[in-house]
Simulated scan of single mutants.
Amino acid sequence: MSLISPAARDALENWLSHQSALKGAAGNTITAYQGDVTEFLAFITEYKADQQGLAALARINVTDMRAWMAQARGTGLGARSMARKLSAVKAFYRWLAEREGFEPTAVLSIRAPKFQKKLPRPLAQDAARNLIDAIELQSEKPWVALRDVAVVTVLWGCGLRISEALGLRGDDAPLPEVLRIIGKGGKERVVPVVPAARVAVDAYLRACPHPLETNGPLFHAVRGGPLRPGAIQKVMARARMQLGLPASATPHAMRHSFATHLLDAGGDLRAIQELLGHASLSTTQTYTAVDTARLMEVYERAHPKA
């Protein structure tokens, strides 16, 4: 941030603290915000050939914004990533304008580039079961194999994000019939725990060589520290390659599968929204589109006039 004025740097740090402390933004979100807004401020500094204090930032106009977006897209940045960066800059400017008392219309009026939202790629129920079976065969250490199976079973059986599953603590064991999960934005939700998840976690805990501490992680790494998402991502990658599953068969796909399988079984969309912790029903409605797309594929293969 050497090119950025001290005033702009301090404003950014204060905004990030505000997002973390008051808005409950996750660590990964804060890191992304910091990178995106820093890149914007550095560009504006170079574009204007002068350090941009708060008064100068208040004078940013539509032409300046379009120049930044053109430069970013010129590096090969995709529409989705550009939209994310613009969203971060707008959020920063809303806060800064309210704090400094200026009109942020020039920044907020810029439209994000359109992009087609990717539909989640859930696994069929048989594929999900086969994947869990294959995961159990990936480690030479029996307790590690049981751990990996337990994590993926929790992802699928409870619809958790990988960060939420790996954030479970020792005092969550043995898993109860329902879990209270603190998700994105500090939002709390109650999630039923299927018997298969409780059985898998119990089996892992009986075999785990590391002591289970009340305030320690439920899922341990090989050396005893907290388990990282990368370990589960790698074991799932090996298992899906053996089964010939697509690259979309990731830990997050198990969460998508949880939602889709509930929908297939007649689950209520708003209830599924609560279980997933989605702030907006429109996010959950994406699974309806997935279900419709799959039905159309079957229709096109089976219909004699398709």
Rank of each mutant, 00 (worst) to 15 (best):
G53C: 06
G53N: 15
L54I: 11
L54K: 04
L54F: 03
A55V: 12
A55I: 08
A55R: 14
A55Y: 09
A56G: 10
A56E: 13
L57R: 07
L57P: 04
R59Q: 14
R59C: 10
R59T: 13
R59I: 02
I60L: 13
I60F: 04
N61T: 01
N61H: 13
N61V: 06
N61W: 03
V62A: 11
V62T: 11
V62W: 09
T63D: 10
T63H: 09
T63V: 12
T63P: 01
D64I: 00
D64K: 09
D64W: 08
D64L: 00
M65K: 14
R66C: 06
R66W: 12
A67G: 04
A67Y: 09
A67V: 05
W68G: 07
W68H: 11
W68L: 03
W68T: 06
M69S: 08
M69K: 14
M69I: 12
A70V: 00
A70Y: 05
A70W: 02
Q71D: 03
Q71V: 08
A72G: 02
A72H: 12
A72F: 14
R73P: 09
R73D: 07
G74N: 07
G74L: 08
G74Q: 04
G74E: 01
T75V: 11
T75D: 01
T75W: 14
G76A: 08
L77G: 01
L77A: 05
L77S: 04
L77C: 15
L77K: 14
L77R: 15
G78D: 10
A79Q: 13
A79D: 12
A79S: 10
A79L: 04
R80H: 14
R80K: 10
R80G: 00
R80D: 00
R80P: 03
S81H: 10
M82V: 00
M82C: 00
M82R: 13
M82S: 10
A83S: 15
A83E: 09
R84M: 06
R84K: 07
R84F: 08
R84L: 06
K85I: 05
K85C: 01
K85R: 15
K85Q: 12
L86V: 01
L86Q: 04
L86S: 01
L86H: 03
L86K: 04
S87H: 10
A88H: 02
